[in-house]
Write a protein that binds this DNA or RNA. Structure first.
Lengths: 141, 141
DNA sequence: CATAACTGTAACAATCTTAGTTACATTTCA
DNA sequence: TGAAATGTAACTAAGATTGTTACAGTTATG
């Protein structure tokens, strides 16, 4: 249980919500589909709510629903809501400033990170929750 | 010490080697620039050697040098040599097969992973070790 | 040929991140 | 008022990565 599967979970969660547009879904029901603990789902929903992708209601008969229609939510937004935006990590300890490479490599890597992030965002922005939902419904065996 | 900084380290290491083409460099010297332990560097060099990006020699007066000239090494190759090729992780536990979403979401995510991987590779293939080296040398303050 | 100086690698400790879990305060409907 | 949900804190468990020590294997060199 180490690798960062938050994006996978987020897409899963949102797809479940998309299949029941208009309804308020309980975290327990979502957790069942994802096969995890309701608290894990609620934590994730918190992040998605901050990005205004979902809206939750407390109290009895509470639950969560999408903040917009599925064709208005791109996977790039989902990724942005749950990821730190770093495909690879920079150096842990700072490199040796006496070495020309050590002195300047971080700027190069930082720049690369931004380029990759843009390219990932562009790829993901070609998919909406609606398009994911269509694949899911269609592939139902 | 958790995030995967292998790619960052690999670019750093290879850039150091590129600055001294033709020479055999000791792992200790590289470690000094990266500010880490020589064993960590040797482990990384092992992966890079498998990808034929570097060549090492054991014994006294041994060391490591590039396997090709810097303009023949793209950062996409470097990334491929040290990364597992997964920007995000799939589900840990398998989702609920009784739910249509749980049943089909993994295929969707797997497909996305491939698309992202291609897009990252394409972005990185626009940079060579040579171009990185040029930035480093030029920005020397 | 012996020694010094490297690399390669195994084994282990330390640290950090993530997921899972329990517990409980808070909110809301009936 | 009480049942049922979310929100959240605190803790445990597991996994991955890095750092470190130790040592075997290799090779130039005196």
């Amino acid at each position: 249980m180490a690798a960062n599967s938050q994006f996978s979970m987020a897409v899963h969660v949102l797809t479940v919500l998309a299949r029941h547009e208009g309804e308020k879904i309980k975290s327990e029901k979502i957790a069942c589909s994802v096969n995890t603990n309701p608290v894990v789902i609620r934590r994730l929903l918190g992040q998605l709510a901050q990005a205004e992708l979902v809206e939750s209601q407390t109290g009895a008969a509470g639950g969560t629903q999408l903040g917009r229609s599925p064709d208005q939510i791109t996977l790039a937004e989902v990724y942005g809501a749950v990821s730190c935006g770093e495909v690879f990590a920079l150096h842990g300890k700072p490199p040796d400033r006496n070495c020309p490479v050590g002195r300047n490599i971080e700027a190069v890597l930082c720049n690369l990170q931004k380029q990759i992030d843009r390219s990932v965002a562009e790829t993901l922005s070609r998919h909406t929750l609606q398009s994911v939902l269509e694949v899911i419904e269609q592939e139902k065996p």
